[in-house]
Simulated assay, not measured.
Amino acid sequence: MDVADELMALERELARGGADEYARVLHDDAVVVVPGAVLDKPACVEAMAGSPGWDEVELGDPRLVESGAAATVVYAFRGERGPTTYRATISSTYVRDDAGTWCLLHHQHTPEAAVTGHAAPGPTQLNLVVADVARTAGFYRDLGWDVGDAVDPHAEIRFDGLSVELDESSSVRFWNSGSPAQDAAATVLSIHLPGRDDVDAVWSRMTGLGHESRQRPFDAFFGSRFAVLVDPDGHQIGLISPRSDAHRHDPPEPAPT
């Protein structure tokens, strides 16, 4: 195995691993540069202990630069977590310790600028038409969302880059003259949870509070643990875990009832 293969094997291990792998591979004087932070070894290990990890990763062919006892690999990285795809150019510099083992001294991400073919901005607001704002707000508070106080049959739930807004059907005519009669469609608004057990835990808590379920938790063909709740107006709320190759299966089978 040549040097590039040795170092890329370590990079793949780190990309798929967590705190233990970083604690073992990082040099004691390591510097890790990621978007928004410059971390030393203890801080990096702590951050990885709280990270949900990637659902899928892809590492491109490396460019190797060697200088004395140090070697650097530079390559393209793609990581997927739930609906998010992260692309970056990664540069990792390794040095050998006294025993001849490679240790990661410097690791840096240069994120790739997002490139899309969209001719219009992405969605920033989702309006759910409901029969009773207070009742529906209670459902989403039970779910764990911070719902603002209702004002003129309207309440807002704000996230980073997205606002979910609850509007009573009686008020919709004031801003959408062509709105059809209230009818929750087959659309599913999904929440990505950090782990498979979290899907079962949230579903059990919500159904225990008396909220309706459309789909009990199960291992879906695409590799996620998945379940569907329904709010008081019939809007479907999906609960989805990160995907796992070990739980994928094909061909798909009907979801269990």
Rank of each mutant, 00 (worst) to 15 (best):
A119E: 11
S67T: 07
V230D: 00
D55E: 15
D160M: 05
L166P: 08
D167W: 15
P232Q: 08
H192F: 08
A120I: 09
H249K: 06
V57S: 13
I157Q: 14
V199T: 02
G18I: 05
Q215R: 12
R225Y: 06
G100A: 06
S171R: 15
G68A: 03
D97K: 09
F226C: 01
T85P: 00
A137D: 00
T257F: 03
C103F: 07
T110N: 11
E112M: 07
V130E: 07
H247P: 02
S163E: 14
H235W: 10
E66F: 06
D200R: 15
T101L: 00
D132W: 12
I90N: 14
E11K: 03
R87C: 13
D28C: 01
D231K: 09
L10C: 05
C44I: 00
A181Q: 11
T110H: 11
Q125P: 00
R96I: 06
R135P: 11
L143N: 14
D250G: 07
E253P: 00
C44L: 02
F221V: 03
A119R: 14
V73L: 08
V3T: 11
R158E: 11
S177P: 10
P52E: 05
L166E: 06
T72F: 06
S241T: 03
R173Q: 14
A23V: 01
